[in-house]
Amino acid sequence: DVAKSIIKLAVYGKAQNRSYERLALLVDTIGPRPSGSKSLEKAIQIMYQNLQQDGLENVHLEPVKVPHWERGVESAVMLEPRFHNMAILGLGSSIGTPPEGITAEVLVVTSFEELQRRAPEARGKIVVYNQPYVNYSTTVQYRVRGAVEAAKVGALASLIRSVTSLSIYSPHTGIQEYQVGVAKIPTACITVEDAEMMSRMASRGTKIVIQLKMGAKNYPEAESYNTVAEIIGSKYPEQVVLVSGHLDSWDVGQGAMDDGGGAFISWEALSLIKDLGLRPKRTLRLVLWTAEEQGGVGAFQYYQLHKEAISNYSLVMESDSGTFLPYGLQFTGSDKARTIMKEVMNLLQPINITRLFRGGEGTDINYWIQAGVPGASLLDDLNKYFSFHHSHGDTMSVMDPKEMNVASAVWAVVSYVVADMEAMLPRS
């Protein structure tokens, strides 16, 4: 009755709300934890102590090098057709503007294709992208490539409609990427509301002028750590089930949802198993990644360090899409492994979360999944998730203790059973 015991402890027992309260203590104390910042390193040290005090095994920090970008002071003011202070968030790794800022006329486009068609008009201008929201993975291309495409046609800066399906005048930051051989121009996200307003103004033929000031700076790489803790396997200790979330966040809100929730339900999964005195045959390894937001930087260095043991990884799990009430588990793996995982999910009948979807993935575990290791992630209300994603709204007020209890139970049952089954999950 292991599954029922875990569910009982997590959802109805004395471990209720523990993951929420632990998370609140950290993010209330530390706040957001951007890569390269002192607050991230302080959070890592706190988690190192937490995991030791919790009685987990082989608690250690694996050093990695991470990017260090700081936002500085930033502003965007519409000067024409009227004075209007705009809410903006510079995009990660963007360069800053000169101290006096960039003041230029605006060209509003709704797609990369329109930008190409109107390329001659873009020279010397600030390009504003008012791209429609399709879904996150499609639309985020504008945030990632917007500056490069605008620079190719001679723009001075780019302002990108926030990638979100809901907005209450809330800018959403995120990483962007420059391209070798293409000029670097400052780039920031603006609110859906301002992007749509400027689109309407432009369609009436109104001239728009904006003054953009960004104090963003890219510093040399910083020292950071992936945080690791284990329950060492009783029979096949060198075989691993990896349970993870990332500890870094953007410099907005508290970084509670993205990805404090994922990190803390992963810790909770091991805590629940330890509290019940359970020790699976395989090692359960908790990893709290660093520098996920810059593109899985900490996780890539973990993969490089550990990939020789890839045949020992039965399953890699990452929760990085919210810890609201789970709809079920996303899974990537062979048909035979999928058959087995369906049986595992049936154990969660008591909390009615038995569905197994496709597309198990996560920025930090994709290296392993692409190399053939089965992968799993939680699926929950993604519309709600992306409404707060990378915005000042990412605070504890978004999180729900009862939902985190259930997410922790799912995470613990799945990780424990796969770690304790006699057979490793079969590969494709």
Binding site: D1, V2, K336, I340, A423, M424, P426
Partner: peptide, 24 residues
């Protein structure tokens, strides 16, 4: 491709299903 011969080929899916249900 596993170390201890505890791979699926040596045990039928039925065995594994039975094993998993024991965790219920």
């Amino acid at each position: 491709n596993t170390i201890h011969g505890n791979d699926v080929s040596q045990r039928t899916l039925e065995d594994i299903k039975e094993e998993i249900s024991s965790y219920e």
